[in-house]
């Protein structure tokens, strides 16, 4: 209910601002809705959204799995931490644009280059978060698992993983928002489709309604994924915590 009110307020402010600024700079909500409907009915909207989502999914999964594995290793093994730390600091501070441009130069304007560039941008934050999570693991529970001779996999699944779950959720959430932002830049610079590409075209033509139509649909999809996937996962991961009655 409160969310609806908040959304209505957003629309109202937008509409009023549009009246003041003029349609060329800020088109009104119905004008943008018209474009969304037109693009949806000729299929272009879904094509571009689909392309972007596929890239997000691939890059996200790649960065999360690789980043979690490396982060866990660095948290557990001191040598890995020492060796990996300088790389990590370099990656953390490397601007996204540099990674994307270099990837396109070295690997060509290919799908693989785009996905790798997006994944590399997200990788270091996943590593850092999981490394912290691994460092915070409860030693006394490790000892319990070892005394009761729990097989490695069972101990990992029931003793270690639940402790890492909040860190994985946090890293997924911050990572997803990072990937959403970077995927559009990568598409703008070197892909012939996707929301980023469309926004680039709209920018060149100064086509504000089109630009807003694509960005807002994209934002809506992000919102849906966030509430439908990320939040339930977080809730599930912490369901054992005693709740206030």
């Amino acid at each position: 209910m409160l969310r609806l009110v908040s959304f209505a307020l957003f629309l109202a402010i937008w509409w009023i601002a549009a009246l003041f600024v003029g349609a060329a700079k800020l088109p009104s909500p119905p004008a943008v809705l018209d474009i969304i409907i037109a693009e949806a009915s000729n299929g272009a909207l879904f094509l571009h959204l689909g392309a972007t989502l596929a890239r997000v999914a691939l890059a996200f999964v790649l960065a999360m799995s690789l980043g979690s594995a490396i982060g866990y290793l660095m948290g557990r093994v001191k040598l890995a931490d020492r060796l990996g730390d300088p790389w990590l600091i370099l990656l953390l501070n490397l601007p996204a644009l540099v990674v994307i441009v270099l990837a396109y130069i070295w690997a060509g304007l290919t799908e693989a280059a785009a996905i790798a560039a997006i994944a590399i941008n997200k990788l270091p934050t996943a590593i850092v978060t999981l490394r912290e999570g691994t460092r915070a693991l409860d030693r006394s529970l490790d000892e319990m698992a070892s005394v009761f001779a729990m097989p490695r996999w069972r101990a990992f699944r029931h003793v270690v993983l639940p402790q890492l779950a909040p860190y994985i959720a946090a890293s997924a959430r911050s990572g997803l928002s990072l990937v959403w932002k970077i995927v559009l830049v990568a598409e703008l610079l070197g892909r012939p489709n996707g929301v980023g590409f469309e926004i680039g075209v709209a920018f060149q033509l100064f086509d504000t309604p089109r630009l807003l139509a694509y960005s807002l649909t994209f934002a809506a999809v992000v919102l849906v994924i966030e509430t439908a996937l990320v939040q339930p996962f977080e809730a599930r991961a912490s369901r054992w915590r005693p709740r206030e009655a």
Binding site: M144, F148, H158, V159, P162, W240
Partner: peptide
């Protein structure tokens, strides 16, 4: 086979009582 009762219970907070026992045994 070792059965151990630590000074603190050292149970897995994210598993039920029954699961805690079954995971060790």
């Amino acid at each position: 086979r070792i059965g151990m009762v630590f000074q603190e219970p050292r149970l897995l907070p994210w598993r039920s009582v029954e699961q805690n026992v079954r995971l060790a045994a």
